[in-house]
Design a binder for these strands. Structure first.
Lengths: 339, 339
DNA sequence: ACGGAAATGTAGAATGGTCTACGTAGAACG
DNA sequence: CGTTCTACGTAGACCATTCTACATTTCCGT
C-alpha cells in the first residue's frame, strides 16, 4: 500500500512497467484504461509490475491525448454551510469510480470564478461541477461547450449544453411561509439577496417567487421583500435598522442561514424574544442552526443528495450523453424554537 | 476580457500564436515564461497575438516538461471553521503571482489524504500546502522529497525536507488557562482530542502540554485531561456524562471550537448557566463563537496570517530554497460571555 | 573598422502517456 | 485443409509545451 521510493530520483514511467513485465508500452496503457483487447494473463502480469514498481500514471501526460480522470468542483466560497454536504455527496458517488476531484474556490467573485473554470479546462479535467456559481447563463453555456458540465444551485431550466440539479427553491420558500402561517403568523416579510443584474435564475429569485406565491395563496398580502447589502458591516446595520422599526412585522423568512443567523444575533442583542417578538425561518439548515441556544428554523435542501445526483449526471455526460437533464429535489422545513 | 470562441472547435495552441505573430514556437514559450532573451518588441507582438486569439497555455502540456504554475492545497476536511481564514490568507498572497491553486479534501482519513497528495503529485503541481494533515512525519517526509511542501497546523520542528507554519499551540493553551485563572477559576480540566497513535506532533498534544504547564505554573494542580470519542453521537454522550458528574469542575478548556460548541450546547440543554455553573474556553475563534447567544471564549490562531506565511515559504521553496523553516504565530484569547 | 561579448531568436529533442492502424496467432467453419 | 474471423498485442504517430543547444544579430570599446 505504501508508495515505494522511486529508485533513482527519476520518476517511474509506463516504459519502466512495460520493460519489467516484458510487454509493449501500448499494452500497459490498455491495462490502465481497462481498454478492450487485453487477456487476463497480460492484465495480471502488468498489474504485478505496476504494484512492484509503485507506478502511478502522470495525469499531465494523460491529459495531452486522453482523459485525466479528474473532475473539477467549483465552489462559490468556502464558508457557506450548504457546501460540505454537497461535497460529501459528490465524493461518495465518486469514490467507487476511478475519478478524482479537485476543488476551486470562486470567492463569490465573477472574475475569479471564471478564471478558476478556465484553469480547470486548462488542466484538461474531464468534467466540472459548479456549485452555486454567480456567472450568467451565457458564460456557463460557453464553458459547457468546452467541457462536460453540471451546475448545482443555479436555475437554468432551458440550458441545452449542461445539466442543472437544484433544490426546488420556490417550494422551499412556500413551505417556510406555510410553517409560519401554521403557527399563527400573518405579517411576514422576506429578506432576500441584494439585487444584482442577471439574477433571474439565481436561487434567491426563485425563493422570492415562492414567497410571494405563498403569501397570495394564503391571502395574507402581496409579500414584502427587503434586501440587505452584502458587505460585512452594512448587513448588520440594515438588520438593526429593521429591528428598530416601530411597524416591524412579527415574522421573517430569510433567504439563507448565513444572513438569518446575523438577524437572529441582532434580535438577541436588541433584547427581543424569539419567537414571541420575532419569528425567523432561514434556509440551508446549517449545523449551527441546530444548536439549542440558536434553534433557528430552516429549510433543509438535502445537499448530499444534490451532490450525488450531480455526480451521476456528470459521469453519464462524460460518457457521451448530450441531452440535458434538469432535476429537482424537494426541500423540507425543519422547525425549531425560532417559530 | 471575455474568452473568444475557439474558431473551429479545436483548441488554440502555442503554434497558432507563433504563426499569427510570425515568430517561432520557442519564442512564444519564452514570452509566456518571462524567460531571458526576448526583446520588448517581440514580447508586445506575441502578447497581442495571444490576446487576439484568446490563447491559454495547456497546464497538462506544461506539466510534461516545466512548471504548471499550480499549487495544491490539502485540507483535513471541509467543515473546520479554522480553514476559511487560512485559505483566504493563501489566496491573497497567491493572487499577485501567476500561480493558481487547487484544493483537495482529505476527509480526515489517512488513506484518502495520501491519495490526494499523490494525485497532486501526479498532476505535476509545483508545490503543496497541507493544512492540518493527519499523516505521520515519515509519510510527510517521503512526499516532501518529491515536491516542495509546506505544512500548516502540524508540528514537526525537526523536519528537514519541508517547512512548518504553526500557531504556538502550547502558548495558546497557556493563555486560555490564564484567562480562566484571572477570572477566579481554579478547578479547570481540558477536553482534548481522542488519543491516537503517532500524535506526538499533533496540535492537540501541544495544547495539552501547554495546559499542564500553565496549571503547574499557577500551582492549581497537575491538570486533568479528558478525551471524548470523535464519532458523531458518542462525543455528545461523553459530554453529557461529564456535565452530569457531581464533582464536575467549574471550568473547561476545549481543544477545538467544534467540540467546545457541542459541550456548550449540551450545557445549555442541561439547564446549566454559563459561566456561573460552567466556564468554557475553546480554540479557533470560529465565527459562530462570536454570536451573542453563543458567546464562546476562544483562542484566535490568526489563520489568515498562517496561510500567508505558508504561501511565502512555499514560493521561496519552489524558487529553490532547501533549508527548512519552522515558524510560529502567537495566538490570543478572545474573551466572551462564556468566562 | 574589428573582434569579442551580450542579446535575441530558432530548430528540434524530450516529456509520458493515448490512440490508430495493423500484424499475427488461434479458433471456427465449410 | 484452406479461409475467415476474432482476440490479442505492437509500432509509431501524436498531443502542447519546455528546454537545450546553437545560430544570428547587435552592441561596444579600442
Amino acid at each position: 500500500m505504501a508508495t515505494p521510493e522511486s529508485p533513482k530520483g527519476t520518476r517511474i514511467t509506463i516504459r519502466h512497467v512495460a520493460a519489467d513485465s516484458g510487454v509493449s508500452v501500448a499494452a500497459v496503457s490498455k491495462v490502465l484504461r481497462n481498454a478492450y483487447g487485453v487477456s487476463e494473463a497480460l492484465r495480471m502480469n502488468v498489474q504485478a509490475s505496476i504494484e512492484k514498481l509503485g507506478y502511478r500514471p502522470s495525469v499531465a501526460a494523460r491529459g495531452m491525448r486522453g482523459q485525466t480522470y479528474t473532475v473539477g468542483i467549483l465552489l462559490v466560497n468556502i464558508d457557506n454551510p450548504f457546501l460540505p454536504q454537497v461535497i460529501d455527496g459528490i465524493h461518495d458517488k465518486l469514490a467507487p469510480s476511478n475519478y478524482k476531484s479537485m476543488l476551486g474556490i470562486g470567492r463569490a467573485r465573477l472574475k475569479l470564478e471564471s478564471e478558476m473554470v478556465l484553469s480547470m479546462i486548462d488542466n484538461r479535467m474531464d468534467g466540472l461541477i459548479l456549485v452555486a456559481p454567480m456567472m450568467p447563463e451565457k458564460l456557463l453555456a460557453r464553458f459547457a461547450r468546452q467541457i462536460p458540465m453540471v451546475v448545482i444551485g443555479h436555475h437554468e431550466p432551458t440550458a441545452a449544453d449542461f445539466d442543472t440539479i437544484n433544490s426546488d427553491d420556490r417550494r422551499g420558500a412556500m413551505l417556510a411561509v406555510q410553517a409560519l402561517y401554521d403557527r399563527g403568523y400573518r405579517d411576514i416579510v422576506m429578506f432576500s439577496q441584494e439585487y444584482m443584474k442577471d439574477q433571474q435564475h439565481q436561487v434567491a429569485t426563485l425563493r422570492e417567487q415562492g414567497f410571494r406565491q405563498a403569501m397570495q395563496d394564503l391571502g395574507i398580502g402581496p409579500g414584502i421583500i427587503l434586501r440587505a447589502p452584502e458587505d460585512e458591516g452594512a448587513d448588520v446595520e440594515a438588520f438593526r435598522a429593521f429591528l428598530a422599526r416601530p411597524d416591524r412585522p412579527r415574522a421573517v423568512f430569510v433567504w439563507s442561514d448565513l444572513h438569518a443567523l446575523i438577524l437572529l444575533d441582532q434580535a438577541h442583542k436588541a433584547g427581543l424574544r424569539v419567537p414571541e417578538d420575532l419569528a425567523i425561518v432561514g434556509y440551508d439548515n446549517s449545523p449551527v442552526a441546530g444548536m439549542s441556544m440558536v434553534g433557528l428554523s430552516s429549510v433543509e435542501q438535502h445537499g448530499r443528495q444534490l451532490g450525488g445526483m450531480a455526480t451521476e449526471a456528470l459521469l453519464s455526460r462524460i460518457e457521451g450523453r448530450k441531452t440535458p437533464k434538469h432535476l429537482y429535489v424537494t426541500p423540507e422545513v425543519i422547525a425549531r424554537s425560532s417559530v
